[in-house]
Amino acid sequence: MFGQFLLVCCCGGLGAVARFVLNTSIQRWWARVFPLSTFIINILAALCAGIAAAAYFYNTVDYSTYLLFVTGFLGGFSTFSTAINEMVALIRGRRFVVGMLYMLLTLVLPFLCVCLGWWIGSL
């Protein structure tokens, strides 16, 4: 049990580093109001979570692998709390249209990506 705990921690750390690298890379060339880096990260995480869920459901991967990837890596990689904070910042900055668009896209597209991921993982 303790070994599994440490592995999840390590995978979470790897996910956080991957998020940092991707976030920094996107922000270097995207200098607009829409928080694209967080959006892309959460879309990718949702797609991967759907694929992993289907792989686990169809017994392609075991529970430990699923746990390490979804709870560990994707838990460190995805960042819903940052997305919410960015929505609030957009609204407080009176960028209502962008804030509402970001909120709508952040809630709807990850759901669709999980469904797409599940479909991909079930092939």
Rank of each mutant, 00 (worst) to 15 (best):
Asn42Phe: 03
Trp30Gly: 06
Arg19Ala: 03
Val21Leu: 11
Ala45Val: 08
Ile26Pro: 07
Val21Phe: 03
Ile26Asp: 08
Leu22Val: 14
Leu36Arg: 02
Ser37Cys: 06
Ser25Asn: 06
Ile41Tyr: 04
Ala53Leu: 15
Arg28Asn: 13
Trp30Phe: 11
Ser25Phe: 09
Thr38Leu: 04
Arg32Gly: 15
Ile51Asn: 01
Leu22Met: 14
Trp30Tyr: 12
Ala45Asn: 05
Leu22Lys: 08
Asn23Met: 04
Pro35Ile: 12
Ala53Pro: 00
Leu22Gln: 12
Ser25Glu: 11
Thr38Pro: 05
Cys48Arg: 00
Cys48Ser: 13
Phe20Val: 12
Arg32Pro: 02
Ile43His: 00
Phe39Asn: 06
Ile40Phe: 05
Ala54Pro: 04
Trp30Val: 11
Leu22Gly: 11
Asn23Thr: 07
Arg32Lys: 13
Arg28Tyr: 04
Gly50Glu: 03
Ala31Asp: 15
Gln27Gly: 10
Phe34Asp: 12
Asn42Ser: 11
Ala54Asp: 01
Phe34Thr: 07
Ile41Val: 15
Ala45Arg: 03
Val33Met: 05
Phe34Cys: 09
Arg19Thr: 08
Ile26Asn: 06
Val21Ala: 09
Gln27Glu: 15
Thr38Phe: 02
Phe39His: 10
Ile26Val: 15
Ala45Glu: 04
Ala53Met: 13
Ser25Trp: 09
Ala49Arg: 01
Trp30Asn: 13
Ala53Asp: 09
Trp30Arg: 07
Trp29Tyr: 12
Arg19Glu: 03
Ser25Pro: 06
Phe34Met: 07
Asn23Tyr: 09
Trp29Ile: 14
Ile43Thr: 08
Ile40His: 02
Ile51Trp: 00
Ile43Cys: 14
Ala52Asp: 03
Ala49Glu: 06
Phe20Gln: 12
Phe39Gln: 06
Ile26Glu: 10
Ala31Cys: 10
Leu22Ala: 10
Thr38Gln: 03
Thr38Gly: 07
Arg32Trp: 05
Leu36Gly: 05
Ala46Tyr: 04
Thr24Pro: 04
Ala52Val: 12
Val33Ala: 13
Ala46Phe: 02
Phe20Asn: 12
Val33Tyr: 04
Phe20Ser: 13
Ile40Gly: 03
Asn23Ala: 09
Thr38Asn: 12
Arg32Glu: 15
Leu36Thr: 13
Leu22Cys: 10
Val33Leu: 13
Trp30Ser: 15
Ile41Leu: 02
Ala52Cys: 13
Ala46Gln: 08
Ala53Lys: 01
Ala52His: 01
Gly50Phe: 03
Asn42Leu: 05
Arg28Leu: 06
Arg19Trp: 02
Gly50Lys: 01
Val21Met: 06
Thr38Tyr: 01
Trp29Asn: 10
Ser37Leu: 04
Thr24Gln: 09
Phe20Gly: 14
Arg19Phe: 01
Ile51Cys: 02
Ala54Arg: 02
Ile43Tyr: 01
Leu36Ser: 06
Ala31Met: 08
Ile40Met: 09
Ile51Pro: 00
Ile41Cys: 06
Ala53Thr: 10
Val33Gly: 09
Cys48Gln: 04
Ala31Tyr: 00
Gly50Met: 04
Phe34Gly: 07
Ser25Cys: 10
Leu44Trp: 01
Arg32Cys: 11
Gln27Trp: 00
Ser25Leu: 13
Ala54Leu: 11
